[in-house]
Design a protein around this nucleic acid. Structure first.
Lengths: 289, 289
DNA sequence: TCGAATTTGCGCATATCTGCACAATAATAT
DNA sequence: ATATTATTGTGCAGATATGCGCAAATTCGA
């Protein structure tokens, strides 16, 4: 089997992840020149250009992307090992990163952050707002709030509650006949989401006047009078500018999962944050089944 | 996440696998002193004794074993990456290692090795005879012949044939009533194997006069007149000293799988060896289903 | 019982790598 | 436009790691 320097690969992954030599250098705690030299060494050893060196940034070549894909398993293993070492050393983890969608992060978690800080002033909680699900196996976060059941076997997943949805619209909508309603929905890239499929079946032939990938933007548009929108109950019910509209078809709810790694969970701060999140979810989004 | 030097881990894994500083040093292509120092560095960074330094050998501590377990995924990833790099570079792989059980290796594969060498003189084929299934993910072999379906998802597995079994005994056995037969079987550690379970149901109350973990030893014992034994057809039929005995219960057969990694298979020599093995199996152990 | 072959441990000269400082370039904000 | 900030590239001195040689210890075989 071909041998290569694992340290070079570590630098390459940091670069691919950080996006710049400087960023990778900061993450690794070394000088940017060192990262540059190790990447050059890896390229020489493999006889491939891995990155395009640009004046102000670097971009992975095709081969670089391919290498990144192939190294995914190794990186997962290294992150897992890092978690184990953390747990074994009883590392004083004081910073816990939570990954969540924008809507969940800002409307569900953020309002309770003061209470959490009061109870756990020693823990710095970071909300990593990510459009797509965070890559726990890349070490981007310690905890994640997901709306789909995690499939990765090594993960510790806890079913925390159910996110109920409702159809909301401007106050006048309740009195108007449903045939005159306009609608607001996700854009095309979210066609696969259950909620979006439900909305499409409800809309029928009526117009969809605004689309956005950002749920909060949809909310604002609805509050401005643009049309009806499907929102989580914990968001729609709290907005005085919107009223809940009657629905013919039952609105499917989404399970809420809290996921982390077993080794991470052994760290008390991570467990504390997980308990905190479970409490929030249980309060605002209790399980329905 | 805790950061650590991946190169140190590489040295540690080589040491754990090689069993000695010198062996690891040879495998890594460095001096033994370097391995020693890197292990010391890793121990210092982790603040744990990983190996007992003995005058003539090293032995992993409990923590070392634990670390080895936790690093398994990372090692798998690195091996996989190495395979990819081999395939990408079109590495001139001329040595292909095949892992197989002793019986399969010596009686099924070995007799055809001259023919293979005639057709592919450029390929050095190594038969790694391993009692248990070889650890492909540790890079111990490029190909493996297994009698159970591989569960690892990343593997490329090919169903090559079926190993049919038969009950064999010394020539005189055919004329003697079955109630007087004695039997030969695996020892206790193989109780879970399908063949052994079948044998036990056939034996009933009749005596088992010899047990061995080595199938070939069982064969020799049977040929010496000791009793009846369950053997693969390709072994039993080829032995003039044994006759096939009538069986009441149908003898279950075992599927024969050829497994490797996709990236390895892209190397022509590996593909050639796999085709060679598939041909042997198809000839001597055709599929039954 | 004795000798040969491995293996680990240690010190030293050398080779390699790293960090730092500075220059150049491009994106961004004022 | 202009200043500011952040990034990459390069040369150099110091720090670090590596390989080599030798000694000590132990196992294996004769």
């Amino acid at each position: 089997m071909r041998k290569f320097d694992w340290q070079d690969l570590q630098h390459f992954l940091a670069l691919a992840h950080g996006g710049s030599l400087s960023g990778a250098a900061r993450a690794l705690g070394v000088d940017h020149a060192t990262v540059s030299r190790r990447i050059a060494a890896l390229e020489a050893a493999l006889d491939v250009k891995l990155v395009h060196r640009l004046p102000r940034s670097v971009r992975l070549t095709r081969e670089g992307e391919a290498l990144l894909d192939r190294a995914a398993l190794a990186e997962r293993g290294m992150v897992q090992l890092g978690h184990y070492l953390d747990a074994r050393a009883g590392a004083a983890t004081t910073e816990v990163r939570v990954s969540a969608s924008p809507a969940v992060a800002t409307r569900l978690v953020a309002p309770s952050l003061p209470a959490f800080h009061r109870d756990h002033p020693e823990i710095t909680l970071t909300l990593a707002v990510t459009p797509e699900i965070a890559q726990l196996d890349r070490g981007e976060a310690e905890l994640a709030i997901r709306l789909v059941e995690p499939t990765e076997g090594e993960l510790l997943a806890r079913r925390a509650g159910s996110m109920a949805f409702g159809l909301y619209g401007p106050p006048g909508y309740a009195a108007r006949p449903g045939a005159e309603w306009s609608f607001i929905g996700y854009d095309d890239t979210y066609e696969h989401v259950t909620q979006q499929q439900w909305l499409r079946s409800v809309v029928g032939n009526r117009p969809v006047v605004f689309r956005s990938s950002d749920l909060l933007a949809q909310q604002e548009a609805a509050a401005a009078g643009l049309g009806a929108v499907s929102l989580p109950r914990f968001i729609g019910d709290a907005d005085d500018r919107l009223v809940r509209l009657p629905q013919q078809q039952p609105h499917p709810s989404a399970p809420i999962w809290l996921v982390t790694y077993p080794d991470l969970f052994r760290a008390p701060p991570v467990a504390a944050v997980m308990a905190f999140l479970a409490g929030i979810v249980a309060e605002h989004c209790p399980r329905e089944d």
